[in-house]
């Protein structure tokens, strides 16, 4: 039981992987599934670079064991296709080095789905979970608001 074969639902596909019970979801999706969009930034739940979406909610994949994800729907940045938030990030110059971007987008994407009418306070509450070291955050704010306004 220290190593298990588990089924993960990732981006609509059923994937069978062998993991240590102690492996995080981040380690499994990057190392076992080759989905390297989610990034390690702290492995401690502090930076949000590894954020994915689990059953509709944002999740720091470094804070979740892979085996905890069994039976849940996991969406990674690779599972998003031409979403408005991705386009808004491009148009608003909401990233520079791009390392925090997948995590930020996954969090924004979840926010837009859960709270299509999010106000400033809600946006702040959600987005303070991620660190961007390149921008001053105003570009990200513009990007997420541009999508929310369309709702």
């Amino acid at each position: 039981m220290k190593t298990q074969i588990i089924d993960l639902h990732v981006n609509g596909n059923l994937r069978t992987v062998t993991v240590r019970s102690a492996d995080t979801l981040l380690y499994a999706i990057r190392g076992k599934l080759g989905l390297t969009g989610a990034k390690p930034g702290c492995l401690n739940g502090d930076c949000g670079a590894c954020t994915v979406n689990v059953d509709g909610w944002p999740m720091k994949s470094c804070l979740m064991l892979a085996i905890e994800a069994v039976g849940k729907n996991v969406t990674t940045i690779e599972g998003l296709k031409n979403t408005p938030i991705q386009q808004a990030f491009i148009e608003n110059f909401a990233f520079q080095c791009g390392y925090c971007t997948p995590g930020f987008i996954m969090n924004c994407h979840s926010l837009i789905l859960k709270h299509p009418d999010a106000d400033d306070a809600t946006i702040k509450e959600w987005l303070e979970s991620n660190i961007c070291r390149c921008t001053g955050y105003t570009e990200i704010e513009k990007a997420v608001k541009s999508v929310l306004e369309k709702n």
Binding site: L35, T36, G37, K39, I77, I90, P102
Partner: peptide, 19 residues
């Protein structure tokens, strides 16, 4: 002008050393 690697960066396809 939009940065040339923009699409890669919003889709998780941009690759860094550890990737």
């Amino acid at each position: 002008i939009i940065r040339k690697e923009a699409q890669d960066k919003v889709t998780g396809r941009a690759r860094y050393t550890h990737d």
